[in-house]
Design a protein around this nucleic acid. Structure first.
Lengths: 211, 211
DNA sequence: ACCATATTCGCGAAATCTCTTGAATATGGT
DNA sequence: ACCATATTCAAGAGATTTCGCGAATATGGT
């Protein structure tokens, strides 16, 4: 019984599998895709994805010769969030990363409740600083896609009359921070929301898709 | 970074450590105590507990020559609950056990919200069917200790005018079921609450202690 | 039919984990 | 001081996991 229950943490007990699951929590990806992102061979990525799949952590949808893997559901997001919470209370590197990140940079908005009250104002807009593919796969309700590249090249029209709340992949991602810095350089009012879609889904929130 | 984060699931990826943590989620225990409960040697239990401790999953308090280990905090309870949730969606044995348990026996009260509304009535009492030591370490607010042994030997005074809601360690524990069966044989109105203190703590609830 | 490509499978060496055994350490009581 | 006991430490055999490599499988296009 406990041996059976231990298979889920066993699947997560590997840095590559953790990274793959993290990648898949942003959007579905092919084996090749995650392999290059994580810097491992395709064969190895395939094996790791199968381990994750056997424990119900990822689902696979086959389209032609491609296998699109994705995080299996809200329960997986909740598990990831809780695991990071425990890890952060002890592990030096994670805690340091968090301190370095949350300390050196400004705190931003730490909860969805606060974000919601900020967004209640009509002149506040929510921006998604992640790559467009991730925005298309799942984004917070009402968010506008504003990938960092597009912001840099000025391809996103941002009226000066608005206030902007920017989010990205999650607390440890730097996209939103860079986006906020960029907007402020241009004299816009921007704040970071230091949570991402994973935390939103974990909290029971619904997401929107494109197409 | 991911290697560091993987240490938490690695600590949980062992049936004995999972069982130990489960035991410690009910009440603090000594090394010997958990060793005999889990059927492993003391040295082995000590090693496993140290692994759990290094990841911040358990705390230790030394009193004399004894080392009392306990689950480290609400985050650990939340992690355990989420892990079981994921495991139950896939693993045959766990899902079977759940079906067998929740199917063959009656469903009981599945959420704290429903329990709260039942307990709002003044004539409803909440009973804790676990061993007294666990009740003393932590029990749901307002619960009365009614260990199975004490119920069997009739040592708990239960007025016939009340309705009883009985809980135990959690969804997979049978104490509450047996207690409910026992009370009904005696013509009392009893229902099982199929959640335990772990789920209560995971949901952010406060617990009471004795002494 | 044939080819290109995405994925999966199988094997073997290296690394890691597990558990037992026996000893070492530390604390409290006599 | 000495002893009993609770816990921890250390080392080694055995089991499991990891990962690269090469081959096998499967699908879609030409």
């Amino acid at each position: 019984m406990y041996a059976a229950a231990a298979r889920v943490p066993a699947a997560l007990a590997n840095r590559h599998r953790l990274e793959l699951l993290d990648l898949l929590s942003q959007r579905p990806r092919t084996v090749q895709d995650v392999a290059t992102e994580a810097g491992i061979t395709v064969a190895n990525a395939s094996q790791h994805l199968q381990v994750l799949g056997r424990c119900g952590l990822v689902d696979v949808e086959r389209r032609g010769t491609f296998a699109f893997y994705r995080a299996a559901g809200p329960a997986v997001y909740r598990l990831l969030v809780e695991m990071r919470a425990v890890a952060a209370t002890v592990d030096e590197r994670i805690a340091d990363a968090e301190r370095a990140y949350l300390g050196s940079r400004e705190p931003g908005i730490p909860t969805f409740d606060e974000a919601r009250s900020a967004l209640a104002e009509a002149r506040t807009a929510l921006l998604d600083a992640r790559p467009r593919e991730e925005y298309e796969a799942a984004h917070l309700p009402g968010a506008i896609s504003a990938p960092l590249d597009a912001l840099r090249s000025g391809k996103v029209a941002l009226p000066r009359s608005k206030r902007y709340v920017v989010y990205c992949r999650g607390p440890y991602c730097v996209f939103a921070d860079e986006a906020v810095a960029l907007l402020r350089e241009r004299g816009l009012d921007a704040t970071r929301l230091s949570l991402g879609p994973a935390e939103w889904i974990a909290a029971g929130g619904e997401v929107q898709r494109v197409g």
